[in-house]
């Protein structure tokens, strides 16, 4: 199967290992991966802050670029950005032509874990990692894409890893895009509930499907000097180290 990678701007610039890991996992399960380097952002920051006209322009460009691919699917290591693409039709209610194009792109775009399980039906991607880990449900993956069992199934099939369920795994980490800097105090108060739960879980790593949540959670863990690592699910699924080293 041919896959066009929508890597997201955040991963591209801040967390490139998530991109390379996604490529590795997809190739391991037999996909041919392409990457169009004209891609930038899905438009979510503007859309979520209320700048719909700016968001519309950037979304149009995304549609134009990804319409050209002959790949069977567009796959992204982000629930949030995938959900944004699924929201595109809302931006084009008044433009029937663009609405159709937006719907077509939305249908072809998948979040990584959902693509592996729902489309490829692969529950074990041959990953191995030594340590205790837990999963944080990123809100948009959970509630917009209905990803709940998919990432858990994949994590439970990582060889050598012990999976534990996080208390209130489905509660928000407090990131919320510009919310995190408009109301940093509230954002941190919400985050600290998440951090408490993670520390209680006694894990080596907390895994999520969105780099944005991981920046939020990881930034606080790092500020506290915590030993718990944050990992993107793509990084974990790419991992094939049985040596016992926790990165």
């Amino acid at each position: 199967m041919r896959v066009s990678l929508f890597v997201t701007c955040l991963v591209d610039q801040l967390w490139s290992s998530v991109g390379t890991s996604s490529v590795e996992v997809l190739r391991r399960v037999g996909c041919e991966v392409e990457f169009d380097d004209r891609q930038t952002c899905c438009a979510q920051p503007a859309f979520n802050t209320g700048y719909r006209s700016e968001a519309r322009d950037v979304a149009r460009r995304f549609i134009e670029i990804f319409e050209e691919t002959k790949a069977d699917a567009i796959v992204s290591p982000s629930g949030s950005c995938t959900a944004m693409v699924r929201h595109y039709p809302e931006l084009f209610a008044d433009e029937p032509d663009w609405l159709k194009r937006a719907q077509a792109i939305a249908e072809r775009t998948h979040e990584l874990s959902s693509f592996l399980i729902r489309v490829l039906k692969r529950e074990d991607v041959g990953a191995s990692w030594n340590g205790r880990l837990t999963w944080h449900d990123a809100c948009h993956g959970l509630r917009d894409l209905n990803l709940k069992s998919e990432p858990r199934t994949l994590l439970k099939n990582v060889h050598g890893a012990e999976y534990v369920e996080l208390d209130n795994a489905d509660s928000c980490c407090g990131f919320g895009g510009t919310f995190s800097v408009k109301y940093p105090e509230i954002s941190l108060a919400i985050l600290d509930q998440k951090i408490e739960a993670i520390e209680r879980a006694g894990v080596n790593a907390v895994v999520a499907g969105d780099a944005s949540c991981l920046m939020q959670i990881g930034g606080r863990l790092s500020r506290h000097g915590s030993k718990v690592k944050v990992m993107h699910i793509a990084e974990l699924l790419a991992s094939q180290e049985m040596s016992g080293n926790v990165r």
């Binding site: 890597v7 610039q13 490139s16 380097d37 800097v181 930034g219 500020r223």
Partner: peptide
Amino acid sequence: AWTSGRDLRPLDQKSFRDKWA
């Protein structure tokens, strides 16, 4: 605002697109 309570992950030295290239 971000760094008031959280560390910030810096930009990677090499972006994904650079690695891909």
